[in-house]
């Protein structure tokens, strides 16, 4: 019997496919998310838009929040550790969190090195903007990917950019001759063996969710249309007027992302979505996606 194998870690993410993972800050929100049909929850101290507003250093949440959430729901519970913060990640693993997000939403603990995630029994999800970044994270042992997008903005444009970029580069690799892959690996800064694997499989070897700016059911459906395996929703749900209704609408739009009549129905009278931020108005240091490499 073996725990923490690639199959077990990646397989866990496969089971989340077609689903929505929701950010929650307490047990009550976690229950609303589970009831609405979330496949998992991300337990946090603050949602990204509040982290953005609060400024300062954002760290792993108080373990009590994770404990509270884990006791409240039967779906998997994820939590965020700072990029490169080995001890935060080990604490989350010791607590029995089901998946760790090594996340740029928190202030990085290491500006040079990401975690060596293969060392852990618990699986990791990491953000990516392009195939090079995706492949480096998989190389370090990430079992699931998500677009970085621009968290806490309620603006989908960066998530769209990152999803299109990764998928276009995957298609390019799949279409290349094997003797061209080493040069591509050099240009992307990606492990050669992973590009070989992508070429053979015809896709990434792990699932890739959309994250960072999903604010409406239509946004969630758009990301599925663009090839996302599922969707993370951060600030959008519990910053809206009617979180339970909003959460259900996002789940249904994700499942039936090509049923436009249905999405029209469930988008009705959802109340005001989060206001959102135009990306070009963000100062360079406020861009979370540029954290990590």
């Amino acid at each position: 019997m073996k725990t923490g194998t690639d199959r077990v870690k990646r397989g866990m993410a496969e089971m989340q496919k077609g689903g929505v993972i929701m950010d929650v800050v307490n047990a009550e929100q976690a229950k609303i998310a589970e009831e609405a049909g979330a496949v998992a929850v991300m337990a946090l101290e603050r949602v990204p838009s509040d982290i953005r507003a609060a400024g300062g250093v954002a760290r792993m949440a108080d373990p009590r929040i994770m404990e509270e959430v884990m006791n409240a729901v039967s779906i998997p519970v994820m939590a965020k550790a700072r990029i490169g913060h080995i001890v935060e990640a080990r604490i989350l693993e010791a607590m029995g969190v089901d998946y760790i997000d090594e996340s740029e939403v928190l202030t990085p603990a290491d500006e040079e090195y990401h975690l060596y995630k293969s060392d852990f029994t618990v699986p990791f999800v990491c953000g990516c903007r392009d195939l090079g970044e995706a492949a480096r994270r998989i190389g370090e042992g990430a079992s699931m990917l998500r677009t970085k997008g621009e968290p806490g903005t309620g603006n989908i444009v960066e998530a769209v950019r990152h999803m299109r970029q990764v998928n276009a580069q995957v298609r390019k690799v799949v279409g290349m001759n094997v003797d061209e892959l080493m040069t591509e690996a050099k240009l992307l800064g990606a492990p050669f063996e992973l590009l070989l694997q992508i070429k053979e499989l015809g896709r990434l070897p792990v699932v890739n969710f959309a994250a960072g700016g999903v604010a409406t059911p239509a946004d969630a459906a758009l990301m599925m249309e663009l090839g996302a395996d599922g969707v993370f929703v951060g600030s959008g749900i519990f910053k809206s007027d009617n979180p339970a209704k909003f959460a259900r609408a996002i789940v249904e739009a994700t499942t039936h992302y090509q049923d436009y009549k249905l999405i029209a129905e469930l988008s009705k009278e959802l109340g005001t979505p989060m206001k959102g931020i135009e990306i070009s108005s963000l100062a360079p240091e406020a861009r979370m996606q540029d954290r990590g490499w």
């Binding site: 496969e14 689903g19 049909g37 039967s74 779906i75 789940v251």
Partner: peptide, 14 residues
Amino acid sequence: PGGESTTMRRLIDK
């Protein structure tokens, strides 16, 4: 298939 049974049940009802 495998997945989250709570989620599937909600969608089955829906």
